[in-house]
Design a protein around this nucleic acid. Structure first.
Length: 207
DNA sequence: CCGCCGATCTTT
DNA sequence: AAGATCGGCGGG
């Protein structure tokens, strides 16, 4: 993996509904305090359109929690879900807008042993990171990673690497777990991938 | 395989 | 008071 390079910040400076499917196949990596790397290929995402989107945490304007989403693209927005799990987003769109892409599932690539240690209930590879809370636990992402620069030339604790074109086809459908904005088909995933969450229950169509 | 429910706590 | 979730449990 010597030729990996972080994604260009300008690549993220667009509408999240455009950015989201193009993140499929990219690799999210985290380096822990001991220099160990855990990473996974992105196989499922959701776009959130900030102040224009009633499902977005940024819908009602900036707050201390959502401040990073209103900043420049290429940073990590991390939030606590149901008081228990961490979930992470790639901030995109122009500085001053609050667009973001929720990372919903990864196919584990590096550091799989460490992922099993962080996910003691997981029995199989596909249980490690097949959901937004699971993947943060698998990589060890917590609130202290909030704001991390994903595009730095020198890889920081959390980095987003450009991926080879995914090859397979992309499906899209409604976002999971939202009530407002439930009609918008802004969830995207790799067709047939075993690491996608809710594979059997939600139908999809080609974009 | 499917559906229900509880855990746990931040944010508004 | 609700929530961008997860996993255990029970039923079919």
């Amino acid at each position: 993996m010597a030729d990996r390079r972080p994604v260009e910040r300008s690549f993220l400076e667009r509408d999240p509904v455009e950015v989201a499917p193009s993140l499929l196949g990219c690799v999210l990596a985290r380096t822990d305090g001991s220099g160990r790397v855990r990473s996974g290929r992105i196989v499922e995402v959701e776009a959130y359109r900030g102040e224009a989107d009633p499902a977005s945490h940024a819908y009602r304007g900036p707050t201390p929690r959502t401040r990073v989403m209103f900043g420049p693209p290429g940073h990590l927005y991390v939030y606590r879900s149901y008081g228990i799990h961490w979930c992470c987003n790639v901030v995109c769109g122009a500085d001053g807008t609050a667009a973001a892409v929720l990372i919903r599932a990864l196919e584990p690539v590096e550091g799989i042993d460490a992922m099993f240690r962080s996910r003691p209930r997981a029995r199989r590879d596909r249980d490690l990171a097949s959901g937004p809370g699971k993947l943060c636990a698998a990589l060890g992402i917590t609130g202290s990673d909030g704001g991390a620069d994903l595009c730095g030339a020198t890889p920081s604790a959390v980095t987003l690497f450009a991926g080879a074109p995914s090859g397979g086809s992309v499906l899209q459908g409604p976002r999971i777990g939202v009530s407002a904005g439930a009609e918008e088909p802004w969830r995207f995933w790799l067709a047939g991938n075993r690491h996608v969450s809710a594979r059997r229950t939600v139908p999809g169509s080609a974009p």
